[in-house]
Write a protein that binds this DNA or RNA. Structure first.
Length: 106
DNA sequence: CAGGGGGCTAAGG
DNA sequence: GCCTTAGCCCCCT
């Protein structure tokens, strides 16, 4: 493996870790903030393979449409939905809610 | 090396 | 609002 692989991965994880409680971000935006525009799917891949006991707030990442990227009827959808509710966020996000809760970085 | 498929996205019907 | 298409990056077979 190359050092770049580790860096790119760590960079994304570091960015994810900074998403504030009470706010959400999108796959594409996280990639961008991590200095890796265009790697939205890579962000998704990383999230998918996180250990179950991770500290990373995976539930604070939704898609560019302001929705949860899981089938509406799935367990995962329900878990993410519940976690967001706990933090005061209701998805799908309305246009106005996006302006208010979408994390744009520091 | 080829194919298939993902927690994606922007653009068009 | 829905669905398709094309582009994207990375992983697994």
């Amino acid at each position: 493996m190359t050092g770049n692989e580790i860096e790119s991965r760590q960079g994304i994880l570091a960015t994810l870790a900074r998403i504030p409680l009470g706010q959400v971000s999108t796959y594409g935006h996280v990639a961008k903030l991590a200095g890796q525009p265009g790697k939205a799917r890579y962000v998704a891949y990383i999230l998918k393979n996180l250990p179950s006991d991770t500290e990373i707030p995976w539930h604070r990442v939704i898609n560019s449409q302001g929705k949860i990227s899981f089938p509406h009827a799935s367990e995962k959808y329900q878990e993410q939905f519940d976690r967001l509710i706990e933090e005061g966020i209701v998805v799908p996000l309305s246009k106005r809610a996006q302006e208010e809760f979408l994390w744009l970085g520091n």
